[in-house]
């Protein structure tokens, strides 16, 4: 019982400290142009590195070993096209989930 609560507290503490130290203590505006550019690119590079290639494994049924699936590939392509056409976050997310479910349902019928 107490093991669980200590673990929950440690997760909170670790996560929060990582987030609060930079914004809490860095008050100077960075002058160095290279660092400014580096920081400008960070959101894009972090999100991109998180998404690829993991998105292709993301529709694995709960309980199964993560694997690349057709449903994820199709849903990712749909999401890329929708994002390219500048559709909003929610629409892109919901449509891709529905596409993934549709492909999962259709696959056994086709093969």
């Amino acid at each position: 019982m107490s093991y669980l609560y200590i673990c929950m507290f440690l997760m909170f503490l670790t996560t929060y400290l990582i987030r609060v130290i930079p914004i809490g203590f860095v008050r100077k505006k960075m002058e160095n142009l290279w660092i400014q550019d580096f920081i400008y690119y960070i959101p894009f590079s972090v999100l991109s590195a998180m998404t690829f290639p993991d998105v292709l494994y993301s529709t694995t049924a709960t309980g199964a070993e993560p694997h690349i699936s057709v449903s994820a590939i199709v849903a990712t392509l749909v999401a890329l096209v929708l994002a390219w056409r500048k559709r909003g976050l929610v629409l892109v997310a919901i449509v891709s989930v529905l596409v993934a479910i549709a492909v999962e349902l259709l696959m056994p019928l086709l093969f």
Partner: peptide
């Protein structure tokens, strides 16, 4: 992940 795609 698709939200990330829509953001970037």
């Amino acid at each position: 992940y698709c939200m990330f795609i829509a953001i970037i």
